[in-house]
Design a protein around this nucleic acid. Structure first.
Length: 727
DNA sequence: AGCACGCCGACT
DNA sequence: GTCGGCGTGCTC
């Protein structure tokens, strides 16, 4: 055997750990693998699943080489998906192995799903006929294979009846292939009647989907303008051409309501993919996506890393939603990586939002993305009338937070037996507690942000790191009793105020820390839709997806919240959030009203919301961004340093800051002065890097990391490159 | 990211 | 005297 043939028997395998390159493994004599094969390989003391890659094998000490232990009986990860993994790794400056790990998130799915036993009618008749047996035979008369429990359930008998018949030879067992998790969607099942603008937009998308070439279309239209119906036409076109389709949704929008709409259009549900899918289902979906049995997946951002082999369209709904951004391990924005996956795959992408991200708007304006605008709501869903309440001129009563103007409208709404929604994006009772005697403020002992009082639970809670302590009676600084004062409102405190004003109204608070979790929340939302509450007070989560048909008043308690936090996207985010919240009203055809309590009624965000002139807002925002060289006109990257202790993280961040060479086009800002999250027990600091070109930024960051202090101990460094354009 | 190896405090 | 804490280092 010559050296060449020895070499040719080692292949590169991407293993799910943070290695910069694939590892090399020997292929045993009678095994055959190719790029894309999923294999089991020994790694240190354990065995892991990896993907055979197509790079050149590393020069590695031949004595270290170990053999592949098994090739899974599983469809290959295709070349396009492999290129996608490489691209994401390179763009996000993450180890390719960690990106591959996201693709291999269903370890049990690499082995084929077992065939299952089923029952099939034989010629034989039972010895005695009973009513129950008759029903069973009737059900099974179709000659198809039934599962025992399925047949018993369908016939309305206990499974012992079926078992008895089987014992008599009335049924035989046959092996059947695993059942598809969802039925095949029918593109012509429930075609919607589209109005002029919708039909035009749908036609554009349909052509693009039929053409099967890369292109990005931004569908942009107010809530209720029929965006979903329009992009369903593109989905239908892609299905007709025999391609798989992925619909990405922010996790929270993946609700029954969406699944029902999909069902109305395609006669079946899409396969779902999200973080709390039961493990068995997870495996089935993963496997069936790889095999092509599943044609349409609706999923959260991680669905982008499913092993599609024949993807022909991606839809990103609510494309502006920050939930598309993953901020641990591999930092990526699924909206942008969707564009990349489509570019590599050579198929179209649809981005949909009532309030597009500034990035997408600019991409559309500059002609990289096509844009389809849906200007109006359906006829019976008038837009709410929107106005600001100037809190300087109509201040709340002492100790309160609701202006008399808002309270008056709430009373009117109550008298009309309609519902009001008060929105405040702050959990708990009060965001800050201080001692009236000595001025002591309650801060978090671990991450130094203020502790939020949760009066209902009798606790002080850090919303940054989750630290909780009991709310004391006395000041820990000066010992004075009963002189602690709550500063500012949270939803609990607003609820208190509402109950004081409207003691007979049915008031409910909705927030993510509500007792009873997601299940309870879903029930409450349901109850509200049925009219079982008069006044709803809620945080962010009421802004999303849910329809309350009798909701005719929306009050934003603090419209200024979030405008002054130093985030370069603060105005954009506030605009998007306020648009969504006020959009909760007026979906019924009834006259409805949205009121924003603000100290800055002339702020561009407020003016845009009130006038409905979002174009003006975007124009202004785009100009500002361009001036400040912020995305999408300049790059922004975060270098996130995390460590077990705060000083450790801080000192490493400062070391990196010092290592940054002066550069005309790229600046390193920070470390951020604001206390950063304590995440999974780790303190994180963020250095902001600002520059012009992506390639320069990436090179700069790599150099910076190489020149900076050596990473050791528990210190970790990750990079978060802000999205721009991928064309 | 796992996982083992290795070196210092409270216990069957 | 051992069980177990998590610091350090390695995995083709």
């Amino acid at each position: 055997m010559n050296e060449d043939s020895l070499k040719s028997r080692a292949v590169p395998v991407l293993v799910p750990m943070p290695a910069e390159r694939p590892y090399s493994y020997l292929v045993p004599e009678h095994m055959s693998v190719q790029p894309g094969s999923i294999v089991r390989v020994p790694l240190g003391p354990r065995e892991v699943a990896g993907i055979v890659w197509d790079t050149a094998v590393d020069q590695v000490d031949p004595r270290k080489l170990r053999p592949i232990s098994q090739v899974f009986d599983c469809p290959l990860i295709d070349a396009k998906t492999r290129r996608f993994v490489d691209w994401v790794a390179s763009y996000t400056l993450s180890p390719p192995g960690m990106v591959a790990r996201m693709l291999l998130r269903a370890p049990e799915a690499f082995d084929p799903q077992p065939w299952t036993e089923a029952l099939k009618r034989t010629e034989r008749l039972p010895d005695r006929m009973t009513a129950a047996r008759e029903r069973v035979l009737e059900m099974a008369a179709d000659g198809l294979a039934w599962t025992r429990s399925g047949l018993a359930h369908a016939a309305g008998v206990s499974s012992t009846v079926v078992e008895g018949l089987k014992a008599q030879g009335v049924f035989e067992t046959v092996m059947v292939p695993p059942r598809p998790v969802v039925a095949e969607p029918d593109p012509s099942y429930g075609r919607a009647e589209l109005t002029g603008d919708q039909a035009a937009a749908a036609e554009t998308l349909r052509e693009q989907a039929e053409g099967g070439i890369f292109g990005v279309t931004l569908i942009d239209g107010v809530t209720g303008s029929g965006k979903t119906e329009v992009y369903f036409e593109a989905v239908a076109a892609a299905i007709k051409r025999g391609h798989q389709v992925l619909i990405l949704l922010p996790e929270i929008a993946l609700t029954q309501a969406f699944l029902d709409r999909f069902h109305d259009r395609f006669g079946t549900k899409p396969a779902e993919w999200h973080s709390d899918l039961p493990p068995r289902m997870r495996e089935k979906v993963w496997r069936q996506v790889a095999e092509g049995t599943v044609r349409v997946v609706a999923g959260a951002r991680s669905a982008l890393f499913l092993p599609f082999n024949d993807l022909g369209l991606i839809v990103v709904d609510e494309e502006h939603d920050p939930a598309y951004k993953q901020e641990d391990r591999v930092f990526y924005n699924a909206r942008d990586m969707a564009v990349v996956r489509a570019h590599i795959g050579g198929f179209p992408v649809v981005l949909a939002s009532a309030t597009p991200s500034v990035e997408s708007r600019v991409n559309a304006e500059q002609g990289r993305y096509a844009r389809a605008v849906l200007p109006g709501r359906f006829a019976d869903a008038a837009l709410p009338h929107l106005a600001t309440i100037d809190m300087r001129r109509a201040p709340p009563a002492r100790g309160g937070f609701l202006s008399p103007v808002l309270l008056a409208k709430m009373r009117e709404t109550l008298e009309r037996k309609e519902q009001s929604l008060l929105f405040l994006n702050r959990r708990g009772y009060a965001p800050l507690t201080l001692c009236r005697v000595c001025g002591h403020r309650f801060g978090c002992p671990v991450c130094s942000s203020w502790l939020v009082e949760h009066r209902f639970r009798g606790q002080l809670v850090c919303h940054h790191c989750g630290h909780t302590e009991k709310r004391p009676e006395a000041c820990p600084e000066c010992g004075t009793l009963d002189h602690l004062v709550a500063c500012g409102p949270g939803v609990e405190r607003i609820a208190e105020e509402v109950v004081a004003h409207f003691p007979d109204a049915r008031t409910i608070v909705l927030s993510s820390d509500m007792l009873g979790g997601v299940k309870r929340l879903r029930l409450e939302l349901e109850a509200i839709s049925k009219g079982e509450a008069d006044i709803v007070i809620g945080t962010q989560l009421v802004a999303k997806g849910h329809n309350f048909p009798n909701m005719t008043l929306v009050g934003v308690v603090d419209a200024d919240l979030g405008l002054a936090n130093g985030d370069p996207r603060a105005a954009e985010r506030t605009f998007q959030l306020l648009s969504q919240v006020t959009g909760r009203a007026g979906r019924t055809g009834k006259k409805s009203l949205g009121l924003l309590q603000t100290f800055q009624p002339d702020h561009p965000v407020m003016r845009a919301i009130v006038s409905g002139d979002s174009e003006a807002f975007y124009d202004r925002e785009i100009t500002e961004r361009e001036k400040a060289h912020l995305p999408p006109f300049g790059r922004l990257a975060g270098i996130i340093v995390s460590a077990a202790t705060r000083p450790e993280a801080e000192s490493h961040a400062r070391g990196l800051r010092k290592a940054a060479p002066d550069s005309r086009d790229i600046h390193v800002l920070g470390p951020a002065e604001a206390p950063l999250a304590l995440l999974n027990g780790r303190h994180r600091f963020r250095l902001l890097v600002q520059g012009e070109k992506r390639s320069d930024m990436q090179a700069y960051i790599k150099a910076l990391l190489a020149a900076g202090p050596k990473i050791r101990g528990s210190v970790r460094v990750q990079v978060d490159i802000d999205p721009q354009s991928f064309l």
